[in-house]
Simulated scan of single mutants.
Amino acid sequence: MAIGTRKLGSLTVSAQGLGCMGMSQSYGAGDESESIATIHRALDLGVTLLDTANVYGGGANEELVGRAIADRRDRVVLATKFGIVRDADGNQAAQGDPAYVRTCVEQSLRRLGVDHIDLYYQHRVDPDTPIEDTVGALRELIDAGTIRHYGLSECGADTVRRAHAVHPPAAVQSEWSLWTRDIEDSVAPVCAELGVGIVPFSPLGRGFLTGSITSAGQLGENDMRRGLPRFSADNLSANLAVVDAVRAVAERRDDGATPGQLALAWVQSRGDHVVPIPGTKRRGYLEQNVAAAELHLSAGELAELEAAGSGVTGERYPAHLQRTVGR
């Protein structure tokens, strides 16, 4: 089992990356030894793109990734993020002024234990700082060799254009899956036009599209999905129809592909500039995800899968967080 490569702008990465957030937060307690073993297994399978952020685990996730890659940095395309800030009560906002950018990158370099970052994203767009100012600071970091490429996360199409006019981003990271299609109307076409890669996070619908979650009661008390509208008891029950439709496609195949693998293969099929980063902290799930990159979907299957995701109930985020995306 191996995986090919794709391009995010001028940056060559594996055709699928590994989202590392869940190793440190959001989906229950982590296991550092298994998480590090998962990262090492990913590299052995040819997965080069590792994705973290300064806010994951309050910096602990960057530190974990840094420990995992300390003796194999040359095999990694390392991506991290800045731009989400939280106050003492946990309220979330975005920041992107140049001084903040410079402070964040130095902190991330120290936590990761590296001398440069390959892909540095603005995690959320700061409504109070012109994107031109933020990208200007990122361009300075590129010129200095501190970062090699930059990206934007959960931004709007106009922001991509304005950022590109200052310096072309390598990628836009956004949620994209069978049940989250928001970027298809404007962001994805602009990225294709400008030669910007797309890095879908949560391509498995935060695990829902695997079919393993059938009730809200399965989620732990500290699981972030308990606070997401689509996972509320009523919405989750309605959304099971999406999984049932994907499972029906899987059951007609003779290769044993799972619903989750088909959902991931659908995201992979969106274009050669699309590099999903399914997140996992376990080697077994990682291997299933990598195998999905080799699946071929017929035109009929693609159409049926797309139709399956058309009846989703519930917003992606609670209202206060939904307002921070698409800027």
Rank of each mutant, 00 (worst) to 15 (best):
Q107S: 15
L119V: 06
G83N: 03
C104S: 15
G59H: 04
Q92V: 15
D74C: 07
G66H: 12
Y120Q: 02
L112T: 11
V76C: 13
R72D: 10
I117K: 01
A79W: 04
D115W: 03
T52M: 01
T129P: 03
E106Q: 15
S108M: 09
L50G: 06
G113A: 06
C104W: 05
E63S: 14
V125E: 12
Q92C: 10
L64G: 02
Y100D: 10
A70N: 12
G66V: 03
I84T: 09
A94I: 08
V105G: 03
L119Q: 02
I69L: 12
V77N: 02
P127H: 13
A99D: 14
Y120K: 05
R124P: 03
D126F: 00
V77P: 04
V76H: 14
V55W: 01
G66Y: 13
A53W: 00
Q107F: 07
Q122W: 00
I117T: 05
F82A: 08
G58L: 04
H116Y: 14
N91A: 15
D74H: 10
V114M: 05
L78A: 04
I84W: 07
Q92G: 04
A79T: 07
L78K: 09
D51A: 04
R110L: 09
N91H: 15
I117C: 06
N54V: 00
K81R: 04
V76Q: 15
N91R: 14
K81C: 08
R110P: 03
Y56Q: 01
G57E: 03
D118R: 11
Q107A: 15
A60G: 01
Q107K: 12
D118T: 00
R72E: 13
A99W: 10
D51S: 09
R73P: 06
E62V: 06
P130Y: 06
L50E: 09
R110Q: 15
D87A: 09
I117F: 00
R72T: 11
A88Q: 14
L50H: 10
A53T: 00
D126I: 04
H123V: 08
K81Q: 07
P98V: 01
N91L: 10
